[in-house]
Design a protein around this nucleic acid. Sequence first.
DNA 1: GACCAGGACCATT
DNA 2: AATGGTCATGGT
Length: 286
Amino acid sequence: MSFFPANNYNLAATLASGQAFRWYPNVQGAWEGVIGREFLMLRQQPNGIEAHSSNANPNSSAIQHYLQTDIDIDAITATFPNDPPMQAAIAACRGLRLLRQDPWECLASFILSSTKQIVQIQQIVGALCECYGEEISMAAVCPCSNNSLRFAFPSAAKLASLSEPQLRSCKMGFRAPYLLKTARLISSGELDLESLRKMKTPEARETLCTLPGVGEKIANCVLLFAYGFQDAFPVDVWVQKAIRQLYFPKRKPSAKRLKHFVQTHFGPNAGYAQQYLFHYMRTQRL
DNA sequence: GACCAGGACCATT
DNA sequence: AATGGTCATGGT
């Protein structure tokens, strides 16, 4: 067992807010999931996160980085605009963090996300891991609330070696050719996901958008959830509903006007604010 | 049984 | 530039 101190960490909101798709609550109220090649059971504690790992020697720095336990979340939410909708979202999601995920897993997962509900994305990703991911060696803990958690997320090289029908067997439908082509571009080195780290947001976004199946929305998700570009602002149907319903209740803003609004209204951590709005809308059923 | 889901892409206007 | 249809699958 290891412990990661954190101030004001909301584990449930963080893991269930649709940024990552491999976390499941178990019957004891802990969260089971996979980071890299490590199966983990995480439990909320008053002053941090308790972790049980499948590894004899847990990769503590990787876990802390993924969970972002060290950041000052109150300093971030303090930069959000002081308007009623945003303050309501902060109150409803207090302690919600943005994760810092592996770029490939995040990219592949969000290619599979288009016009799918979060539960279905979890099912597709789970099937993909069970079929094509490497088995995790379970030295220390015995799961599993979900069998797919016994497998790592498949590498780009592994998926690149498959056929489109093999991918379709994981129920991803028309997204299969997108994922396959992107996996081949990544594994061939034609696009280096690490090279994005030293780019500024617009250039990194344009680079991701050259990949098949990746448009502005999915690119923004990857920039925000994997790389930590906190000005990336994904607009999906929920966030669109939040903006229109909470900020423009009467008139219907054009797409252009709406885009300008989200780029100017939410401050230096706009992407973070977006995640609060997203989770707020989904949990409050507004 | 409709309706919709953390969209992208291509063909029309 | 801006809409509209299409893609595959399953939850609500």
